[in-house]
Design a binder for these strands. Structure first.
Lengths: 231, 231
DNA sequence: CGGTCGATTTGCGCCATAACAAAAAAATCT
DNA sequence: AGATTTTTTTGTTATGGCGCAAATCGACCG
């Protein structure tokens, strides 16, 4: 097996504070995995026996209720760990991870987890930090859904996407992967109809420019004002 | 300083898999803290320089938006860790913890955190499990708020309280600490008015029996059916 | 025991947004 | 190019539950 270069991961948040030998120890048990656009890396409910780090591409993580209603939990970007069911003491994956563009990940067998955490306290601390950040984010979303109405929730969601995956262009900031109105609706707890109406209004105001599975934010500051303004 | 007995904590989920010396190492740096009903253990935004374990009592953790809207994040029960801002790499407490009954906790200085995690991998793994469970719970709440209407959300919230703090009586299951309609509203993203109406209807149906800051669930199974029924 | 204050209940009107419906637009396939 | 599918837009109607208002109830206090 070709050795994976540790420079690939040394700078990632999950591995800060780890020396070269530690990184080699981590990489020694990993293998690469490609996922083509539209393919699932793992499915909700499936036995969780591996965990992952995304190197390149973008995944959408979703959860579905027994009644069939779906939500978008988050989008995974390069450098993010995902599918860490082991870390949260779950036997199965709590959601489904689907590639929205062709993607490349590293995979470890779950059997490696306890040993890695025990040998590398920095990895443990970093992973906790990651989980904590996700927890904060979830709670923020709950707070938004409790107290704000649809337009502001959508604005916040788009601003979060700008931070995670915004790419500057001369027209404004482009969300760097294909994302549908339905996705936005499932991130914000509304319907694609409402999202579509909101985008139409914003387009009229010159805040954004839409397109099929495409979002270009022309005026991020204006959107921010709209999201934060009291009332 | 009086030594705290390790039998107090040995059986708690946070410390499973740790030997006697490990437990002593953990306890050596802790001190006890009493919080009377209504008192805040820490406040949102305050510099986080300690973390906690609840031994006895009950706390309510809340978060508030810049605009002043509040939500109840969770209730902390005996054996739960809380205020672990360090674990999530936050400088300040992200919420406020208030005693809803007279309570007793253990407190550690944040400076002890890194050392404890490094020396005791089991503690790291257990803490991750705790964070993961909270993350799961948050995502479930988001999913509920996205897809279900107020009555079902309230039903789920009450069932969760039954699991966390239900005490069997001959009349039914009593939530073991004072909790107001306003609290329930802030847990479910609705208003106290709506919660009150829902409780009135349930009382009529014989599902629950209310009271001032008091909830008695007469028919847990009926409530469960109501919460889960498709539609 | 009367007064005060916090908590709860209830009524009513309105509005944001879901639900239903259909068409238009853009991409993909044959 | 034409056909098919997916995604988005837009119109109309219906309604859950919020906002406002007020009354009631119960607990605690002096």
């Amino acid at each position: 097996m070709a050795q994976i270069d540790r420079s690939l991961i040394a700078a990632l948040p999950s591995f800060v504070g780890m020396g070269p030998e530690a990184l080699d120890d981590v990489l020694a048990q990993a293998r690469p995995l490609r996922a083509l656009k539209g393919a699932a890396v793992f499915n909700q409910g499936q036995n969780a026996d591996e965990f992952f780090l995304l190197l390149h591409g973008r995944l959408r993580v979703t959860r579905i209720t027994p009644q069939g209603e779906q939500m978008v939990v988050r989008f995974v970007g390069p450098g993010d760990m995902f599918g860490v069911a082991m870390a949260i003491k779950s036997e199965t994956y709590p959601g489904t991870a689907t590639a929205v563009v062709d993607s490349l990940a590293l995979v470890w067998p779950n059997s490696a987890w306890t040993g890695l955490i025990s040998r590398h306290p920095a990895l443990a601390l970093n992973t906790m930090g990651t989980l904590g950040a996700r927890l904060q984010d979830s709670q923020t979303r709950i707070l938004e859904m409790s107290t704000q109405q649809a337009e502001k929730r959508v604005a916040h969601a788009v601003l979060r996407l700008v931070n995670q995956a915004g790419r500057k262009t001369d027209e404004g900031i482009l969300i760097d992967f294909p994302i549908s109105r339905q996705d936005i609706a499932e991130m914000t707890g509304t319907t694609l109809h409402t999202v579509s109406r909101i985008f139409s209004a914003w387009e009229e105001m010159g805040l954004v420019k839409g397109g099929r599975r495409r979002i270009l934010v022309r005026d991020p500051h204006g959107l921010f004002m709209l999201a934060e303004k009291a009332e």
